[in-house]
Computed example of a mutant assay.
Amino acid sequence: MLILGPMLTLSQALYDQIVAHARADHPDEACGVVAGPAGSGRPERFIPMLNAARSPTFYEFDSSDLLKLYREMDDRDEEPVIIYHSHTATEAYPSRTDISYANEPGAHYVLVSTADTDDAGPFQFRSFRIVDGVITEEEVKVEA
């Protein structure tokens, strides 16, 4: 069930970094986090991660990298505002696996599809909230 809901606002620079990471890791899925001050909801710090699965159909954060990231965010009083990954052969919509791994109810889950595009082609860039298995698509606002 898809429900249209709130909005994700991010800078053009962060948008460009997420798309560039998805493009660079293609044909494998790219993944990462954009952290922001705890409680602010503001995405500020781009943190590309390694897809430990190195797969075109699946992404997985390396557990030690993820632990290090959460400790670092805790030390900086940050939280994950955006958790992103790419889909290389399908549309930018959460898969069953994506839904099962969505364990940050306050985060925006951004998906970028690199399917059917060339290096300069348009990328699908969509944002969702995923809470208790319910997917809510959000409008994405990119600011200069």
Score class of each variant (00 low, 15 high):
Ser63Gln: 11
Thr136Tyr: 01
Asp75Gly: 05
Glu139Ala: 14
Glu138Ile: 11
Ala115Cys: 12
Ile83His: 04
Asp65His: 12
Phe123Met: 13
Asp74Lys: 14
Phe128Thr: 05
Glu91Pro: 06
Pro80Tyr: 01
Asp132His: 10
Ile130Arg: 00
Thr97Trp: 05
Gln124Trp: 02
Ala107Asn: 14
Arg129Gly: 01
Tyr84Val: 12
Tyr70Ile: 04
Ile130Gln: 00
Tyr70Leu: 12
Asp132Val: 06
Arg96Cys: 01
Ile130Ser: 01
Ser64Val: 02
Glu72Leu: 14
Ser127Asp: 13
Ile82His: 04
Tyr109Arg: 04
Pro122Ile: 14
Ile82Thr: 07
Ser100Gly: 11
Pro122His: 13
His85Gln: 11
Val131Gly: 03
Ser95His: 10
Glu143Asp: 10
Arg76Thr: 02
Tyr109Asp: 05
Arg126Trp: 03
Ser63Glu: 09
Val112Ser: 01
Pro94Trp: 04
Thr97Glu: 14
Gly121Tyr: 11
Asp65Arg: 10
Ile130Glu: 00
His87Pro: 08
Asp65Lys: 06
Val134Pro: 01
Ser113Thr: 11
Pro80Ile: 02
His85Tyr: 12
Asp74His: 13
Arg76Val: 02
Ser95Arg: 07
Leu67Thr: 09
Met73Phe: 12
Arg76Trp: 04
His85Arg: 11
Pro94Arg: 03
Ile82Ser: 01
Gly106Leu: 08
Thr114Lys: 05
Val81His: 03
Phe125Ser: 01
Ser64Pro: 00
Tyr101Leu: 14
Ile82Met: 05
Leu66Cys: 04
Gly121Ile: 13
Ala102His: 05
Pro80Leu: 03
Asp77Ser: 12
Arg76Asn: 10
Thr90Glu: 12
Glu72Tyr: 08
Glu137Met: 11
Ala102Lys: 06
Asp119Lys: 08
Ser64Asp: 03
Asp77His: 10
Glu143Pro: 03
Val112Gly: 01
Asp119Leu: 07
Arg126Pro: 02
Asp132Asn: 14
Ala144Ser: 07
Arg96His: 02
Arg76Asp: 13
Leu69Glu: 05
Asp119Ser: 09
Glu72Lys: 10
Pro94Ile: 08
Ile82Glu: 02
Ser64Lys: 07
Lys141Trp: 08
Ile83Ser: 03
Pro80Asp: 09
Ala107Trp: 11
Thr136Met: 11
Phe123Ile: 09
Pro122Tyr: 13
Ile99Tyr: 05
Asp77Arg: 14
Glu138Asn: 11
Ile130Met: 07
Ala144Trp: 00
Gly121Phe: 12
Pro122Ser: 15
Arg76Ser: 06
Asp116Pro: 01
Thr117Ile: 15
Val110Gly: 00
Ser86Leu: 13
Asp65Phe: 09
Asp74Glu: 09
Arg126Phe: 03
Ser95Thr: 15
His108Gly: 05
Glu138Gly: 09
Ser64Thr: 06
Phe128Ser: 05
Ala107Arg: 13
Pro105Lys: 04
Glu137Ile: 09
Phe128Tyr: 15
Leu66Gly: 02
Thr117Ala: 13
Asp119His: 04
Leu111Arg: 00
Tyr93Asp: 03
Leu69Tyr: 03
Leu111Trp: 00
Ala89Thr: 12
Glu91Ala: 06
Lys68Cys: 02
Arg129Thr: 07
Tyr93Glu: 12
Tyr84Phe: 15
Val142Ser: 06
Lys141Gln: 15
Asp74Phe: 10
Ala89Tyr: 02
Tyr109His: 12
Val131His: 12
Phe123Leu: 14
His108Ala: 13
Ser113Val: 07
Ser127Met: 14
Val140Asp: 07
Asp65Ser: 13
Ala107Ser: 15
Asp65Thr: 05
